[in-house]
Amino acid sequence: MPPVLVPVPAGSTRRAFLAGSAGLALLVAGCTAGSADAPAVSTEEADRLAGQVAVQEAVVAAYAAATTADPALALSDLAAQATEQLDRLRAAAPSSTASSTASSTASSTASPAASSSAPAVPPAGADVRTWLREQVAGAASAHARACAGQTGARAALLGSIAAGLRGHEAALA
C-alpha cells in the first residue's frame, strides 16, 4: 500500500514531533523558558527573543490603530492572531516585560511599527490597509532575521510567527 499523501516529516506524527522536540513542546504548551524544565538559552539569545516582543507589541498596536482609523476593515481575526503571537512570545521570552526589556536589542531588527521614529497610527490621508500591511511586513522581516540568530524551539517559534505575519501581509494585499 503506498504511503498516505500527508507530507509531514517521516515518522513525525504530532505526538512524535512533540516528544522529539522538548523545547518546542514547552513553547507550544506556553511554558516560560525560565521554568525548571526549559532548555538552556544563552543571554544573547534571550535578549534577542525579548527584543522581538517589542516588535510584536507594535504589530498588535498597529492593528488597534488601523481598526480605530477604519473600522470597516474587519481586522478582528488578524488582530486576534497577532495577540496570540504576542502572548506566545512573551511566554517564551525569559524575563520579558515587554518593550522595556526589548528596546536595545530590538533596534537592529525592528519593524517600522517598532521604530521610535515610525508613526504609531496611520498618517492622515494614508490608505489604512496599506499602512497596516507595511507594519506587518516589517515585523515579519524582523522576526525572520531574529529567527536566524536563535536555535531550537525559539528559532521555530520566531520562524513560525514570521511566516504567520507573511500570511497576514498576503491577506491584507
Binding site: L24, D77, L78, Q81, A156, S160, A163, G164, G167, A171
Partner: peptide, 13 residues
C-alpha cells in the same frame, strides 16, 4: 476556510 491565515504555521497545535 475561515480564517484564511494561521497564527503559527507549522507549529504543532
Amino acid at each position: 476556510r475561515i480564517p484564511v491565515t494561521d497564527a503559527f504555521p507549522g507549529l504543532p497545535r
